[in-house]
Amino acid sequence: MDLFAYDFMVRALLGALIIGLIAPALGIYLVQRRLSLIGDGIGHVALTGVGVGLLLNQSPVLTAVVVSIIGAIGVELVRERGRTSGDLALALLFYGGIAGGVVLVGLSDDSSNANLMQFLFGSLTTTSQQDLIVIAVLGVAVLAAMLGLRQALFAVCNDEEYARVSGLPVRTLNLLMAVTTAVTVTIAMRTVGLLLVSALMVVPVAAAQQVTRGFRSTMAAAMVIGVGSAAAGVWLAGEIDTAPGATIVILAIAAFVAVTVGAGTWRVLRRRSAPSRQHPAAQLEPPEVVLRAGAR
């Protein structure tokens, strides 16, 4: 009954919690900048990195980090130019990334479908002690950057020109975002997989902003939702024997739906109980209208 009596489940849980915490902390800046899907794109590129690792008998995580950082910087440079062809360039990069990954994994000695699936949809329960250390160290680094540079990153994502006129190192901050996105995608590869990683960056933020009023509170609420879905997802997946990554994402989406419906219901109820307050103002308007109508 007690799933967490097993070491591998404890490691799975810790890995998921770290990703659940950092993915929304990073994702909020991506959402603010309308780059919600960038994590997904970088995930595609990371698959080529996995393929390179398997082919060269290197650690796939390491090569995925390197390749996705290169990809993310490339995307940022295209975005910075603001060229109309940027959209197309991104598409080429993403599909090139996933196709390259599938081909390279196929060429490697370890070319089973199961292996590919492991990277695409996560393989949380096979997280080793060493994996967990890598996830923790990189996770802390990403989190420190996202929280420590919050005001600067907020300024850049909110109004890039203003940030430039404030003398902020806009380009460096943008590249930092690109690199941390790549790192987060790669370490989350174990947990939710490359195809679902973007969900953990974006869905908790989307849920949080239904009820929050400020950036800081949205960030905090998104991180709580992220950690909550990760914990509940790992537990539920163990109980009903489903894929942990997909279960975590389903729960995050359930949180989004619950918060949206809850907030909507609350607004409707408040509006129904409020009309008595709006009434006097509504009464002030009509006489003028009547007068004007009478004048004609």
Partner: peptide, 23 residues
């Protein structure tokens, strides 16, 4: 607007970055 809420105070606080530095 991007959808991520920001308070008036948070937007105005960005104006301090040039003077304070980012760290």
């Amino acid at each position: 607007g991007s959808g991520v809420p920001a308070t008036v105070g948070e937007v105005v606080a960005s104006g301090r970055l040039a003077r304070r530095g980012i760290f």
